[in-house]
Write a protein that binds this DNA or RNA. Structure first.
Lengths: 243, 243
DNA sequence: CCATTAATATGCATGATACATATATCTGTC
DNA sequence: GACAGATATATGTATCATGCATATTAATGG
């Protein structure tokens, strides 16, 4: 049966149907480590636990539009790299009712991250650092600002782990890293972002050469200011034509 | 607002909610080319057009379970490589009502593909070849058995294009190719699968060495039979431990 | 003016890959 | 039974990407 044959077979509105929500992984790099913006739940279930910000999908709203709306309403951000991550549909993922969640990955610059923390402290009370367990590239751990491990609400730890894996996988062949950097950046900043996401150190000359050979970096001729030592040149990301 | 805060804010069941369906891209290699199993619609809208088989997600059924059920009921297949692809949620993707579709990719061996065609001719009337337009690795075209181009129902052409891109991207670093091959296969068969999906010819010695170096091929010591010329050794896929 | 620090540049060894070519093993023909 | 034809399998070599060591440049601060 095709998805649209139901009018002649049965009326699905006569049955209870799953609700559809979007949940956002708001991810940025803070102090050289990956960090996500979370909300602290003040209601049952999972009172007091941290959770990903989310919202229901309206009947006249595309999934992408719903994600953008949540980004706007919850984090006060108009612009961010938004991409669909995965859809989580286990029956018991929410103890009260059936909710299917389409997870989105939102990448924030350090500036946007800090702005969201400052502007909406009530909605986004804290930044949670994401650490690769044992620094070996294994599964992720969530660390509160204090440093203690914590357990996210619902299946949000799975969502976060999926986000980190996706990010790691796309890092070297896509342009996601640039969504985490300001308009102008140095090669060292770019390498710092890669190292934070991968959780490993990279060889500097090899990294520089590889990035420059990709042809998507535009030297600006300007240099960083305020450096105690030799200032680095500022680059700009230039989207490739042959994509 | 978090996805589960609604009990204290508003009741989403009081509003119309989107329905959730799964659609399957049943993909195999036929005669050295990628092919998908489609159903011919006999109802409005898009009467007479080809469409991906799909079905609604039950209230007590996970997304993966719904995909497996559609695979079982529509194609009569108990086993196939099933993986979630992407979720399509444009508002107007179905002209009658709001349906969010979670697309799954199902990979079939040539044997399973042919069996599905033969056993369920009423449900799966035809195999449609998928061709890379211009054989240059560009966007996909769908060709009916006769050879004429055709237009799929709804946004199913987008879904199919997404499936082909995903498959191409995962081909060399994942084990998806083996889901398209029988238990025992020759290196030439493996290369044929890669070439069909990529739409380009590959260098034979380089391909062999790379595959053997991955360490996931187990030589069986047996050889293909019925070959007019030197018979090739049969290999078996052996999942790697260090995954 | 020199020590310090990091950015930038270069040289070299290593490993992966593309391509050409050689050898092995089967069938069918004469 | 030798040989041609066809394909599997193996090897050799040039080229390219990468990792790592090291040199050079440009800033600050004593």
């Amino acid at each position: 049966m095709n998805e649209t044959d139901f009018l002649n077979d049965y009326d699905p509105s006569a049955f209870q149907r799953p609700s559809v929500a979007v949940d956002l992984v708001l991810l940025g790099i803070r102090a050289g480590r990956p960090a996500v913006l979370l909300v602290k739940r003040d209601q049952l279930p999972h009172v007091g636990r941290w959770a990903l910000p989310g919202g229901f999908v309206g009947i006249d709203e595309s999934l992408d539009a719903a994600a953008a709306r949540v980004l706007r309403e919850k984090a006060g951000m108009a612009e961010a790299h938004l991409e669909q991550l995965y859809t989580f549909g286990a029956v018991e993922r929410d103890p009260r009712m059936r909710i299917i969640s389409v997870a989105y990955l939102a990448l924030l610059t350090e500036q946007a991250f800090d702005a969201a923390l400052g502007v909406k402290p009530a909605l986004l009370p804290a930044a949670i650092h994401v650490a690769w367990a044992g620094e070996t590239g294994g599964p992720v751990d969530m660390l509160a600002p204090g440093g203690e491990k914590l357990t996210l609400a619902f299946d949000h730890a799975d969502i976060l782990a999926t986000a980190m894996l996706r990010l790691r996988g796309k890092l070297d062949y896509s342009d996601v890293a640039f969504a985490l950097l300001p308009e102008l950046f140095t090669l060292r900043q770019l390498q710092d972002v890669h190292e934070a996401i991968l959780g490993t150190a990279l060889n500097k000359p090899a990294f520089r050469r590889r990035q420059l050979d990709k042809g998507w970096l535009m030297a600006t001729g300007a240099y960083e200011s305020g450096a105690a030592f030799r200032p680095a040149e500022l680059y700009r990301f230039q989207r490739l034509m042959a994509d």
